[in-house]
């Protein structure tokens, strides 16, 4: 029944997954090589692979990658600094939580990407508008999770610590922080993802440089194979950053 999961079933489901992904690749290959679908719609996978190798070998990506990563790092830093301090300050009072939490969650539900035209108007097409947008979008999940992390620490724990004579500092380091950390970290992770995506997204919509802008440029010039190569490259970068984040997170938890 449910508790018994024979090995065969586990292998079979892995098989289905592999089959599905390989099938997708195969369809792509057949579509371009056998059915001869226009390369403007779908480039040849081998061609994409060559372009990807060329992008990496030539080092052409370095400038755009540096811009995108700098924008993202600045945006995320601002979002974390503001989100955590504001969130922690609000979480210290039940009243402030009631005042601000609904406000933040209401704004968070709006697609903040809408602010991009305003930011572009104020800060121009360069990196500052991307940083501002990434920081704005990243701020909300961080502040909301910081509020809920520190605001929902079990009262039994704080009472127990008080009864044993914990000082405010001890309370923070030994009770509040460990209790809130998982939720706060989840918020940081969400902020990380949305800030990264909004930086790339805003480069796609209005920018002078960066990976998102590069993809748009290639699309406009109909260099489909190279554009696909860049998409694969960006997906890989995002994946690498996520893995790095997971490792940092594991390290932080272990600490």
């Amino acid at each position: 029944m449910n508790s018994r999961e024979p090995l065969a079933i586990r292998i079979a489901s892995r098989g289905v997954q592999a089959f599905f992904l390989l099938g997708l690749l195969l369809v792509w290959f057949v579509a371009t090589n056998v059915w001869h679908i226009s390369t403007i719609l779908l480039p040849n996978p081998l061609n994409v692979w060559q372009q990807l190798i060329d992008v990496v070998r030539s080092g052409e990506f370095v400038g755009d990658l540096r811009i995108t990563l700098t924008e993202f790092a600045s945006a995320f830093t601002i979002a974390v600094a503001l989100g955590v301090t504001v969130g922690y300050s609000i979480s210290r009072s039940r009243y402030l939580i009631k005042v601000f939490e609904p406000l933040f969650s209401a704004i968070y539900a709006i697609p903040i990407i809408l602010f991009l035209p305003l930011y572009v108007m104020i800060w121009g097409l360069g990196p500052p508008s991307k940083i501002a947008l990434g920081a704005t979008i990243g701020f909300f999940p961080i502040v909301l999770n910081t509020i809920s992390g520190f605001g929902s620490v079990d009262r039994t724990l704080t009472s127990a610590a008080r009864s044993m004579g914990a000082s405010d500092m001890q309370m923070f380091w030994h009770v509040l922080l460990p209790a809130a950390l998982p939720i706060v970290l989840a918020g940081l992770r969400m902020g990380f993802t949305v800030a990264l995506l909004s930086v790339i997204g805003s480069e796609t919509i209005a920018a002078l440089a960066g990976l998102g802008h590069r993809i748009v440029n290639l699309a406009e010039n109909m260099e489909m194979a190279r554009m696909f190569a860049y998409i694969v490259f960006v997906v890989a970068i995002v994946a690498v950053l996520n893995v790095a984040l997971t490792m940092i997170e594991a390290y932080a938890r272990w600490q």
Partner: peptide
């Protein structure tokens, strides 16, 4: 078991990168 990981993988992809393809 089989398809949820694929769905989560697709959901996790940065879709903004393929916006030009949609257009």
């Amino acid at each position: 078991r089989s398809f949820m990981p694929i769905i989560l993988l697709l959901y996790g992809l940065p879709q903004v990168t393929i916006l030009p393809i949609f257009v």
